[in-house]
Design a binder for these strands. Structure first.
Lengths: 195, 195
DNA sequence: AGAGTATCTGAACGCGCGTTCAGTTCAATC
DNA sequence: GATTGAACTGAACGCGCGTTCAGATACTCT
């Protein structure tokens, strides 16, 4: 299925994921039916099962691909050497990445409890990897004396929570540009961990 | 109903709210059925309607009473006069209050999208009032020159997001005491807004 | 033109949902 | 001990759920 020469629509798979992502973000996984997703794509509900194993698999794939993309994007980002530069890069990267994908972010943070146990463990592991990125930066900076963080792990949690919160209020039509938002958060993060 | 001389159980109302709060926090509003709540209370589903108008009303009442309590608790808190002391009081109060009510906090932040429009507006207004408390503290501190925050409103959002994030990782059995957690967050908040 | 195949429809499956309500239970009151 | 009335049961209501699948459809390839 969905091979190199489909007869009807070659793009139903991506359209399905896009529709599910928007609906899950807006109404929540449990409140969105397969029929509603299908209607958005323009097919009957049964047709969706040519592209996904089941509803749970659809949720898992959305969350996994989001986190895979997050980690991959960070790893390919060119960055400096010092802890301070790394922290600034991380802060700006996180804000920018999250502002570009509000729906995926919302789902990744809110639908964890709707994952099957095995899927939950897989997603948690990816999330933990990302948290460790910041944790390592903070630890390195503390060792260098550039930062004053007594507890790198919990400081990392606090910073990520603060940064991710940007998605709850930022609107493209709003008063602040993305660059201004980046600056605002970088200013607070920089001071919060400073020696 | 539920007057001073009920025949069966005088305490079913509070037990219903407690059960619903725990289940909603754990599994989400849309994923919890009235029958499951009823089983937790030890009655049949129909009996619940002696205490609530409907499922939506139950969710609304949980969220509203949480936010009412939050605002009332802040307003009765004795506090100093300066912006710095007010910010410390707010920070410690917020962390303590939220650590004491993880389920209510979770629901208040995650089930907004399951509220009917009218209920949503009521809850949003209460939330906005609370955000304004911090916003005013930051603005006052900036005016006094004690803080360096260019944008009180968005700084308030960032600080609240950071503080509320404590509920995602804190466990009573964990390494840090509540006092240590308060100190940790106060240290970061203080520096983040400092001049 | 005909075969082959990816795709989708439309109906059906059993099930659990929120909510209602006539009837039952039971403690308090007279 | 009869009456009251709050509390609760148990069954029922229509409905939408996730999922399956036989059959129809429409495209590609020979």
């Amino acid at each position: 299925m969905a091979r190199t020469s489909g007869s009807h629509s070659e793009i139903t798979g991506p359209r399905l994921r896009a529709a599910a992502q928007a609906l899950f973000a807006r109404h929540g996984y449990a409140a969105v039916s397969m029929r509603r997703i299908a209607a958005e794509v323009g097919v009957q509900a049964g047709a969706l099962y040519n592209y996904i194993p089941d509803k749970q698999g659809l949720l898992f794939e959305l969350m996994k691909s989001h986190l895979d993309e997050l980690l991959a994007a960070w790893e390919t980002l060119p960055k400096g050497v010092g802890a301070r530069d790394a922290l600034e890069a991380f802060t700006r990267f996180h804000v920018r990445f999250h502002l570009d994908r509000p729906d995926a972010v919302f789902i990744a943070y809110m639908e964890l409890r709707n994952l099957d146990p095995a899927n939950f463990r897989a997603i948690e592991a990816l999330r933990r990897r990302y948290e460790t990125v910041l944790e390592d930066i903070l630890r390195q900076g503390a060792a260098e004396g550039a930062f004053d963080v007594a507890d790198s792990k919990h400081a990392a949690f606090a910073v990520i929570a603060m940064l991710t919160g940007v998605t709850t209020w930022y609107r493209d039509e709003g008063r602040l540009s993305r660059a201004e938002v980046e600056d605002l958060y970088w200013s607070m993060v920089r001071k919060a961990v400073s020696a």
